[in-house]
């Protein structure tokens, strides 16, 4: 056997465990899920077959359509607000904070990232609730007469999400900004660009791939999240993941839950293609 062939055989041997694992526990269940989405329920029994009924239901039933719309609206709003808030934060840390303090500043900015995910949403409930810190403070200052209803609304869900994603995006945008050579900005300013022009024409376009990559990550994680809307949003409006969990719990309707998951996947795939021109997933 030639050396190259032996190398290749060994490489396959090293590769096999990871590939088999991914095939068995990710790809296979994934296709099984797609197949299941075309089944339907009779009583509590799953009847397999090729029945697109679940999909027609998703796109005609007002409850399902509303959940889809809620999810999309919340996700888009969260993504936009998070970028708008995180960009200046990352820029200030990268350009204003002295170099030796930057790592510490960054570490501090994302420290609450390490609280338990479930507990973080719960903490916002303590802050935003009827008797929470915000209401008690505003009442105490005499700024409001009645407690604000923030918890159990969409606003609470959005605040909880924005808090998480500002931290995530600050990290990715900072990593992008710090890689830029200061010479670009210097050159622009030598050629007479104002600070603002320098930002819009030089810095922003150069960091766009990083921003879009962060936005895509935010989109994917936000639209698939169950915890934050479940804890903070109350039960006034449902998101797609909440609807999926309801199907699993209440009625054991796995086929419908699978179809909803396929729709969720399709939305993410669309977002991927919309942003793929700028995506640098390998450089996150």
């Amino acid at each position: 056997m030639s050396l190259a062939a032996k190398d290749r055989r060994q490489a396959w041997g090293l590769l096999a465990p990871a590939l088999v694992w991914t095939a068995a526990f990710f790809i296979l269940p994934f296709f099984a899920m797609i197949a299941l989405s075309f089944a339907h329920m009779e009583g509590r029994e799953i009847v397999r077959g090729f029945d697109p009924g679940n999909y027609t239901r998703i796109f005609t039933d007002p409850v399902m359509l509303e959940a889809l719309r809620n999810s999309l609206e919340i996700t888009v709003v969260v993504t936009v607000i998070s970028i708008v808030l995180a960009y200046p934060l990352a820029a200030i840390i990268a350009f204003r904070v002295p170099a030796c303090w930057q790592r510490l500043a960054l570490l501090l900015a994302v420290l609450p990232f390490w609280t338990s995910y479930v507990v973080r949403s719960y903490s916002w409930l303590l802050v935003l609730g009827q008797n929470g810190v915000v209401n008690k403070t505003l009442l105490g200052l005499g700024l409001i007469a009645e407690p604000l209803e923030i918890a159990s609304t969409r606003a609470a869900t959005v605040i909880g999400f924005v808090h998480f994603f500002v931290m995530l995006l600050t990290l990715t945008i900072y990593a992008n900004l710090i890689q830029l050579s200061p010479n670009y900005a210097r050159a622009a300013q030598d050629l007479g660009a104002s600070r603002w022009q320098c930002f819009t024409h030089v810095i922003l376009p150069l960091t766009l791939p990083g921003v879009i990559t962060g936005a895509f990550l935010t989109f994917v994680l936000c639209i698939g999240d169950y915890i934050t809307p479940q804890i903070l949003g109350g039960n006034t409006e449902l998101t797609l993941p909440q609807l999926i969990m309801l199907q699993l719990g209440r009625s054991g309707n796995f086929p419908l839950a699978s179809a909803l998951s396929v729709v969720l996947m399709a939305v993410v795939t669309l977002a991927y293609f919309a942003s793929s021109r700028w995506l640098r997933l390998d450089r996150v």
């Binding site: 269940p29 698939g224 699978s258 991927y272």
Partner: peptide, 15 residues
């Protein structure tokens, strides 16, 4: 990495 955890979990639950 590009798939929601919820979907990974649902697929495995079914499996």
């Amino acid at each position: 990495m590009t798939v929601s955890y919820l979907i990974v979990a649902l697929g495995l639950l079914n499996l």
